[in-house]
């Protein structure tokens, strides 16, 4: 047993560069897989709500008609289960953390007006077709 065993290590540390990154003056580097936050390509979302059912924390809400997707970043733990379950693969896990904000609010994503309009027309088209088919059926029965 001896004393002062640690001196060489301590001295070496005294004269070497710090191992930490000088964030925020130097950028933080994340590996490709780092789970920072969930992001969405909202325009390709079809609003099935698979992610809402999958989320173990209930942090997500989807409104198909309004074309919105909402995430409560304070509840989300970025487990990535919604990404795995998404049928259109429009959800993804991104590196890097969210920027801090002044107040607590949910992040709301809305589809662009063009996509919403196209979807609205598609729905109308379906309704029209259904009505036509119904009419044709009724006529056929008569």
């Amino acid at each position: 047993m001896a004393v002062m065993k640690f001196i060489p290590t301590a001295l070496k540390n005294l004269f070497s560069k710090p191992v930490t990154t000088g964030y925020p003056f130097e950028p933080a580097v994340f590996p490709e897989r780092a789970r920072g936050h969930i992001s969405i390509e909202i325009d390709s979302c079809i609003g099935w709500g698979m992610c809402v059912k999958a989320c173990p924390l209930g942090a997500l809400t989807v409104d198909k008609l309004k074309g919105t997707w909402e995430i409560n970043r304070f509840d989300c733990v970025v487990c990535g289960y919604c990404v795995e379950k998404c049928p259109k693969k429009c959800l993804s896990v991104q590196t890097g953390y969210q920027t801090p904000g002044a107040d607590k609010q949910k992040a709301l994503y809305t589809k662009s007006p063009e996509v919403l309009k196209a979807e609205e027309e598609k729905r109308k088209e379906i309704v029209r077709k259904a009505a036509e088919a119904k009419k044709a059926k009724e006529n056929g029965e008569k």
Binding site: F30, P31, R33, A34, R35, V77, C79, G80, E84
Partner: peptide, 20 residues
């Protein structure tokens, strides 16, 4: 973090195997 994406909570297990 490089291999799983998490520093202490990895979220790589699933029933029937691993995710990554």
């Amino acid at each position: 973090e490089l291999t799983t994406g998490g520093r202490v909570i990895f979220s790589v297990n699933k029933i029937g195997g691993v995710l990554k």
